[in-house]
Simulated scan of single mutants.
Amino acid sequence: MRFLPVVFGFGKCLALAFLILTSCQQKPAEAPAAPAPPAPPVPTLLTDTTAQDSLAAYALAHPHDTLVLLSTPKGDIKIRLFQDTPLHRANFVRLANYGFFDNTVFFRVEKDFMIQGGRSDFQTMKIGVYKIPPEIRPHYYHKRGMVGMARYGDKENPERKSSNRDFYIVQGHPMSELELQASIREFNLKLTPAQKRVYRTQGGAPNLDQQYTIFGEVVEGMAVVDSIAATPVDQQKWPVKEVTMKVKVLR
């Protein structure tokens, strides 16, 4: 009986010592928060007033940027941009460098005619409201694989200025002589014998000739264009399953 107070007191000392030790322990230092990534650059907003001078200056600053890679779920397409359409080339390169096209899709697909891309319901990057002055060159025609810029019709757009984002790639199909002659008459086309031969053997869209600016040509990946053109579409020609893209300037 005499030992009970001693044992009880010793237990209280142990408990007190434990409390003192735990209260003196410091919390581990928290790792410093990682710095927030820098915001991606955004393009200067262009207008119809500023677009021509701004794009001309960009073309001069990027004289060798003429090859771009367009990657899609169906494969890659390489496009060579033409030097003698400098405003359209600069506009496409500029938007590609800002990553604008990476949040867009092919939104209009017409088999045996063309595929059109450059917009999406999810695109939030602002580029300004502007059109590109026309650079319609007589030596370019809409044979298979040519790349052009869409635009509003002549009634709303008599100057034939191009869209700032909507581009198309011609797929086409080999045309019979009867079909080609009908297009020549309907659209009052003046085609060389070589151009007629290309339309008959390779195909294209002669109904677009001398009305839209052609600014590039597919150099690799026409099989990918054909695959995209064959994708199922809804009544508005919008692919049932979205065909996304990533666009990178190679040089």
Results as ranks from 00 to 15, higher is better:
P5C: 04
P5L: 12
V6K: 13
V6N: 08
V6S: 07
F8K: 06
F10H: 04
F10T: 14
C13L: 15
L14V: 11
A15L: 15
A15F: 06
L16P: 03
F18I: 10
F18D: 12
S23E: 03
S23T: 07
C24H: 08
Q26R: 13
P28M: 09
A29P: 12
A33P: 01
A34T: 11
A36I: 15
P37K: 02
P37W: 00
P37T: 02
P40Q: 07
P43M: 00
T44P: 10
T44N: 09
L45W: 03
L45K: 13
L45D: 02
L46H: 05
T47M: 06
T47P: 01
T50Q: 04
A51G: 02
A57T: 10
A57Y: 04
Y58A: 09
A59R: 03
A61G: 00
A61N: 11
H62T: 05
H64T: 14
L67S: 05
L67R: 11
L69V: 08
L69P: 04
L70Y: 01
G75V: 06
D76Y: 00
I77V: 15
K78T: 14
I79R: 10
Q83E: 08
P86F: 05
N91Q: 11
F92T: 08
V93N: 07
A96T: 10
A96R: 10
Y98V: 05
G99V: 07
F101V: 05
F101K: 05
T104A: 09
T104E: 12
F106M: 01
V109A: 00
K111S: 12
M114E: 07
Q116Y: 10
G118V: 09
G118L: 10
R119M: 14
R119W: 14
Q123F: 03
K126D: 14
I127S: 10
G128K: 02
V129A: 14
Y130M: 06
K131P: 01
I132N: 12
E135Y: 09
R137I: 10
P138C: 09
P138M: 05
H139E: 11
H139F: 03
Y140W: 04
Y141G: 05
Y141A: 03
K143P: 00
V147K: 02
M149R: 13
A150C: 12
R151H: 08
K155A: 14
K155N: 15
K155M: 11
E156S: 14
P158M: 11
K161W: 13
S162M: 09
D166Q: 15
F167Y: 15
V170W: 08
H173V: 14
P174S: 00
E177S: 13
E177T: 08
L178G: 14
A182T: 15
I184P: 08
E186Q: 07
F187V: 01
K190L: 10
L191T: 07
P193R: 02
P193L: 05
P193G: 05
Q195C: 01
K196E: 14
V198A: 10
T201W: 03
T201N: 11
L208W: 12
L208Q: 06
Q210T: 12
Q211K: 11
Y212H: 12
F215P: 13
F215V: 04
E217D: 08
E220D: 09
E220W: 10
M222P: 00
V224T: 15
I228D: 02
T231P: 06
V233K: 04
V233E: 01
V233A: 04
Q235C: 03
Q236V: 11
K237R: 07
W238P: 00
V240M: 05
V243Q: 08
M245Y: 03
K248P: 07
K248M: 04
V249C: 06
R251W: 08
